[in-house]
Structure formats: C-alpha cells, structure tokens
Simulated assay, not measured.
Amino acid sequence: MEQKDKVLILTEETSTNTWRKTRNLLLLQLKLWIDALRDFALMPIGFVCYLMDLFSDSKDDHHWNRLMKWGRQSDHHINLFQHKSFDKKKSVTVDDLADIVEDVLKKDVKNSQSTQQLVETIKQRVKTQFRQD
C-alpha cells in the first residue's frame, strides 16, 4: 500500500476554532497569573489587617472584613473560571478587557495606527463601555 502525504488544509472554520482554543488557553494563563499575584499580595496585607484589628479599640474586625470584601470583588473582576453568576454583576472582567483589546487589534492594526493610538483607542472603549452612570 502506498501511503500518501497528508496535507493540512486550514479552512477559516478550522482557523477560527484553533484561535478560540488558543485564546482560551492564553486567557486562562493570564487570569491564573493575576490571581496568583493577588494572592501573593494578600498574604502580607492579611497579616497587617489582622494586626490592625487586634490592636484596635473596636471589637469588630473592620479591616479584616474590608479585606474579605475586596477579595470577593477581585474574584468578580478576574472571573477565573467564567462563573455565569458574575455576569449579572456590572463589573469589568478580564474577559471583557480581552474582548476589547482583541477587537481593537483586529480592526485598528489594519489601519496601521501607532501603538500609542491603539492604547488610547482601548482606553476610550473601556471608558465608554463600562461608564458608571
């Protein structure tokens, strides 16, 4: 039997599917890094909050509770595992920012804008899309 060389033909559908999978992997890696940096920063901050509450005159855990609230809010922004319940909240997530950056790069790189113009376009899109009314 004669074995023919297989030729890989990339259709637009295959290319789109490959990009979607690659994008999901890269986005997960970015979110894991952001989550790890946040956790690393929270270690000493948690200790400081504990000490501040321990030596305060108040009986409540004001600093600790604020830290926990901030941690929950940052979970919504990172949205590491794409919780659907987080979508109901009107907070900007890493996914939202990635969508904006990808969209701007797809459209505006073709127009050969400078890097500074691209960054300004991204900032403007974020401001208009997530304006707090």
Rank of each mutant, 00 (worst) to 15 (best):
I9G: 03
F47P: 00
L26G: 05
Q73C: 02
S74P: 00
A41T: 09
L105N: 14
N24S: 15
S112V: 04
L105I: 07
D60A: 12
D39P: 01
I45K: 13
T128K: 09
D108F: 02
D53I: 10
K127H: 05
F81K: 10
V7R: 08
L27D: 07
D87V: 00
T11E: 02
H76R: 10
I100E: 03
I45G: 03
T115D: 06
Q116C: 04
Q124Y: 09
M52H: 09
S74W: 08
T16G: 01
N65D: 15
F40R: 13
V7E: 13
D53H: 11
I100R: 07
L28T: 10
F47H: 14
F55C: 07
L97C: 13
V126H: 02
R72Q: 05
R131T: 06
E120F: 02
K110T: 06
D39H: 11
F40N: 12
L25T: 13
T93S: 14
Q113S: 07
R20Y: 08
L25K: 13
Q29G: 08
N24M: 14
I100K: 05
I78Y: 04
I100A: 05
E2Q: 04
D108N: 07
G71N: 15
G46Q: 11
M1K: 04
L28V: 02
T22Y: 12
H63L: 11
R38T: 01
D87E: 08
L51K: 13
S91I: 10
D75F: 04
